[in-house]
Amino acid sequence: MVLELGMSDTSMERTGGNPAGLQPIVRVADVHKSFGQVQILKGVSLDVARGEVVVLVGRSGSGKTTLVRCINRLELIDKGRIYVDGELIGYKEKAGKLIPESEAAVARHRRHIGMVFQRFNLFPHLTALENVMVGPVRVLHRPKSEVQQEAQALLAKVGLGEKVHNYPSQLSGGQQQRVAIARALAMKPSVMLFDEPTSALDPETVDEVLDVMRNLAKGGMTMIVVTHEMRFARDVSDRIVMMEAGAIVEAGTPEAFFGNSRSERSKAFLSALQ
C-alpha cells in the first residue's frame, strides 16, 4: 500500500500529516525497508511538526521500532526519503541520484536527534554523570567544566541529582532510563526518539520514566514515542499513529483514537492490549 504525502485534512487520517500544516521537523516520505527477504516498512509517510508529540502504536512486528531507527539512520532505508530539520538523512543527493552518506556525515546528523532505547544502553564503564557528559565532550569537543555543570543540572532535572557518581550497575532500571534520557538531552537535540522506553522496566519504575517524558513534552520537545503505555498516549500525545504490517493504518488525535467514535481497528488493538 502506497500512502500519499498529503497535507490536506482529508488525507491526514491516513498519512499522519500534521494538522497545523507547519514546516515539519521530521518528514518521512514513502519509506521502504527490508531485512533480507522480509519487508518491514512498506511505504511509510509521516510528518512531525516542531513541538509535537507523536505516539506510534501497533502490534509487535508492525515496524514501529524499525521506523524510529531509520529516522536517525541506525538503519539505512531502501527507498523513500527522511528529512530531519530539513536535511536529508542517510543519503546525499548528487545529480538526482541518492548516494549513501559517509559514517562521518551520518554522525553529524545524529547529534541533533536524541534517542532512548528499550534496554537503556548506558555505557557501563562510565558513571551517570560521565554517561551524560561523554557526548558533548567527545563529540562536540566542548570544555569539560562547562559540560559538567549542564550534565549535573540535567540529572537533577530527571530526579537523579543524588546519583551522579553511580555506575549504571548501581542504578535501578527506571533510574538508568532516566540517565539515558539525560544523556540524549545533553546533545540539545531538536527531536527525541523513544523506542519502547518503558518496556524493559519493572512496573513500579515505569511512572518515574513517564513523568520525565511528560515534563519533556510540556517543555515543548518534539517527540516520537513507540510505546504500549496507552495512558501516556492518551494524556500526553498530540497524535497517535497506528502501524500494521509495515504501514500506517490510522492517525489521529487521542480523542479520536480513544473516544467513542474510534474505528474498529483501534478497538481491536486496544482490546488486545488488555
Binding site: R110, F117, R183
Partner: peptide, 9 residues
Amino acid sequence: DAARAIGMR
C-alpha cells in the same frame, strides 16, 4: 547503537 545515537563516529 547508543554511541552512534549521540553522534559518535
